[in-house]
Nucleic acid binder design. Structure first.
Length: 508
RNA sequence: GAUUCGGUAGCUCAGCUGGUAGAGCACAACACUUUUAAUGUUGGGGUCCUGGGUUCGAAUCCCAGCCGGAUCACCA
């Protein structure tokens, strides 16, 4: 295990020597007993005053040493616990009231390092310069750190030597979290967002469920799956690209409202808004349609935004986005008309192909009508929608799981929610006609035979479920990572995932 | 996948038209009992991403590769 020992830097070697010194002094650098913490940094800083100081005569807290300033027979240090940072004041003669000054002169001043985790007991006071601090009368080493922690300094809100290298931050998120406190805040907020969504849904008596991640037919979306193999069954299995078909089976089974935070896996490119695994919240509600779903969606998002940010406004670069309901609704044809001047109503495939040529939208020869319309929208319209906007009534060819529009031929009852030029949600009135569904699957199957590797498989079991009868249902998928990016002001999906996918590091 | 920018000490970075590597912090030593980017003095620390090439000589120029970011393409 120590084959790398000769690659250690000077500072790492010194820390290992200190480790041995500590052991020689009878100090266990990784002690087993619990440490009786009774306070934390944020709490003390929020509540300590001259009036309340009696309550802070005997505090015990633990954290990571972030800076040390020795001044001879006394010194200051800063520890960071899960709530924040607080200063310590430590004096030799408090720590070592007797002749032997080892615990101060040797252990504290020489053998402890930035990055070590220690526990302290003492009382809270305010220094001459007004800093709430802990006057330490006893400390305990709780974990020795062997790797130098990048030191980030700060003065009057200005940060010095911040570690900004994205590679360092994503590969060593543990270190990123220690030294960049705002990163931690982002992830705490992400959990608040998810909790707040759960609260909204649970208040409406929705049921949170779990459905299979390993699926023998990867359905519910058009995407390339990851494939794996089950040894005992000797069958291929796919990591799910969506959970839609399973949630609909549960609607068939008699639940009125089910939801799941679905970790999905898609074997596709990666960039600022795509990670191979990502999270979609899907929910399905019986006896509703996509108009109802638009209202519910805008209520949900307004409620979540105002709960986690105390405002419905968020900044996205230069732009300001308002999550306050209601959101603009526009059909995809009207959106295209608005931004290109072209009316696509009643146009056939060849006419649309010609329009694409005129608009300089690149289309392939094998693209059908629906796909070309989607291309025009994506290229000419989508980026214009900065404020939350529902784009409605998509062409049927793009939507094999969606109910046909109640009054517009060739279209389906579907909407996408666009925010800041990106799709955040996709919803529809669910197709519940088993015969129509079978035909749509068969069309997909033909596409697959023509080589479309994102076409859907025919899922016989799902069809069997629909044949028992599924109520009219509306369902939605909300891209949680993208929503979190918006609500936390992060520009990259890597900043809302603790451990974004990276190429493996080479260790020699 | 394409284009582009980057990779130098533990961290942040400098290093020009080629001449054998530098700062601040961190680290080590000494001093200092209310400091706070603590301070003062002294010192140690480098596979300049990797491999080739050009050259008397390469961190620097050229080629290939690895890793990362950004933009584009595909997608959510």
């Amino acid at each position: 295990m120590e084959t790398k020992i000769h690659h250690l830097s000077e500072q790492e070697l010194i820390r290992r020597e200190k480790l041995q010194e500590l052991k020689k002094l009878g100090i266990d650098p990784y002690p087993a007993p619990l440490y009786p913490v009774n306070e934390n940094a944020a709490n003390i800083k929020a509540h300590f005053t001259e009036e309340t100081k009696e309550k802070y005569q005997n505090v015990c807290l633990a954290g990571r040493l972030m800076s040390m300033r020795d001044m001879g027979k006394a010194g200051f240090a800063v520890i960071q616990d899960s709530t924040g940072r607080i200063q310590l004041y430590i004096r030799r003669d408090d720590i070592c009231p007797v002749e032997d000054k080892t615990m101060y002169n040797t252990v504290w001043k020489k053998l402890l390092d930035i990055g070590d985790i220690i526990g302290v007991k003492g009382f809270v006071f305010i220094t001459k310069t007004g800093e709430i601090s802990i006057h330490v009368h006893e400390y305990t080493l709780l974990s020795k750190s062997l790797r130098p922690l990048p030191v980030v300094k700060e003065k009057e809100g200005e940060t010095f030597d911040a570690v900004t290298d994205p590679e360092f931050r994503y590969r060593q998120r543990y270190a990123d979290l220690i030294i960049n406190p705002e990163v931690k805040n982002t992830f705490v907020k992400i959990t608040q967002i998810k909790n707040s969504i759960r609260e909204f849904l649970n208040n409406q008596h929705a049921l949170e469920v779990d459905t299979p991640v390993l699926q023998s037919i990867p359905g519910g979306a058009a995407a390339r799956p990851f494939i794996t193999h089950h040894n005992a069954l000797d069958i291929p299995l796919y990591l799910r690209i969506a959970n839609e078909l399973y949630l609909k089976r549960l609607i068939v089974g008699g639940f009125d409202w089910v939801y799941e935070f679905s970790r999905n896996f898609r074997n596709e490119g990666m960039d600022r808004t795509h990670n191979p695994e990502f999270t979609i919240l899907e929910f399905y509600v019986a006896y509703k349609d996509y108009w109802w779903m638009m209202e519910t969606t805008e209520q949900l998002l307004e409620s979540v935004a105002s709960k986690v940010n105390n405002t419905t406004l968020v900044k996205a670069g230069e732009k300001e986005i308002d999550f306050k309901a209601p959101y603009k609704r526009i059909s995809i044809y009207d959106a295209i008309k608005e931004h290109t001047g072209v009316d696509l109503n009643d146009r056939n495939e060849e006419e649309i192909r010609e329009i694409c040529r005129q608009l300089h939208v690149d289309v392939e020869a094998n693209m059908g009508k629906g796909k070309m319309i989607d291309e025009i929208f994506g290229e000419k319209c989508e980026h214009h929608f900065v404020q939350p906007t529902f784009i409605t009534d998509y062409p049927v060819e793009m939507s094999p799981l969606t109910k046909k529009h109640r009054s517009k031929a060739g279209l389906v009852e579907r909407f996408e929610l666009i925010i800041n030029g990106k799709e955040v949600a996709n919803a529809y009135s669910e197709l519940n006609d088993p015969i129509d569904q079978r035909e749509r699957f068969e069309e997909q199957h033909k596409l697959m035979e023509r080589g479309d590797d994102e076409a859907m498989y025919i899922d016989e079991d799902f069809l069997r479920a629909l044949e028992y009868g599924m109520p009219t249902t509306s369902g939605i998928g909300i891209g949680i990572d993208r929503l979190c990016m918006l609500l936390t002001g992060q520009a990259s999906i890597q900043d809302v995932l603790f451990f974004p996918q990276m190429r493996p590091e080479k260790h020699d």
